[in-house]
Design a binder for these strands. Structure first.
Lengths: 114, 114
DNA sequence: CCCATAGTTCAGAACATCGGAACTAGTGAA
DNA sequence: TTCACTAGTTCCGATGTTCTGAACTATGGG
């Protein structure tokens, strides 16, 4: 179990961030982490909506988010502490995270009919 | 050769848009179309940077952009007229395109060292 | 009709993702 | 220490997606 890799702020790449957040599950996970400041275990996220996400898939999702520079993960005893690197991303790509998260919260419902 | 499918504005989905723009080639293509208003042939885009993108790959890229609702394609004689649906996307997901295109233009170069 | 040009579709190889089973790490109790 | 439990990672086979050359379609001009 090798230690985690976290890219430096100046190494953040837009394509990695977009790819990470292009998956609705990952976007939901990241939204939870970003809005709740710091989410502990993966297990608390296992039930997104009504689907159950297997641990191995969750682990892979966290890895993608981590390596895109969206979250920082560190062991805290037996579980994981994940927190969002919103400030880093905002510094490098201003407005990006806000726009994406807004798009997702306004997205699923088909807006007010005009 | 079936006619092209273009999603309606209210059917635009954020994950499709992020997925489409998560590929640097597609992002570059879209940037060209968006900034130049309307790019004709695929062939003018065959050389992005210094790589040559084969026609079949280009065609697939255009399809992804089209089905994400980012561009509208229509035949004009023997070639293709593509134009960006920036207004549609902006209406549905305000600020999203701007933030993404900004991220890409500021992204590739490793920013000013602090 | 024949040819050239612009782009699409097909098919198989290369690559990525999903998820169950096995594994690793930490904690607490006997 | 050893056992058991919990949280997460890694492995690997199945499934799905992307890439790209070759064949095909569509259009316009001799």
């Amino acid at each position: 179990m090798r230690p985690f890799f976290h890219p430096a702020t100046e190494d953040l790449r837009p394509d990695a961030i977009l790819h990470a957040l292009a998956d609705p599950d990952r976007a939901a996970i990241f939204t939870r982490i970003a809005t709740q400041g710091c989410v502990g275990s993966c297990a608390t996220l296992a039930a997104l909506g009504d689907r159950i996400i297997p641990k191995s898939s969750l682990s892979a999702h966290f890895k993608v988010l981590r390596e895109a520079g969206l979250i920082r993960s560190e062991r805290q005893g037996v579980e994981m502490r994940n927190h969002a690197r919103c400030a880093d991303v905002e510094m490098r790509f201003p407005g990006l995270l806000t726009a994406i998260l807004n798009a997702y919260t306004s997205g699923p419902m088909p807006g007010p009919r005009s």
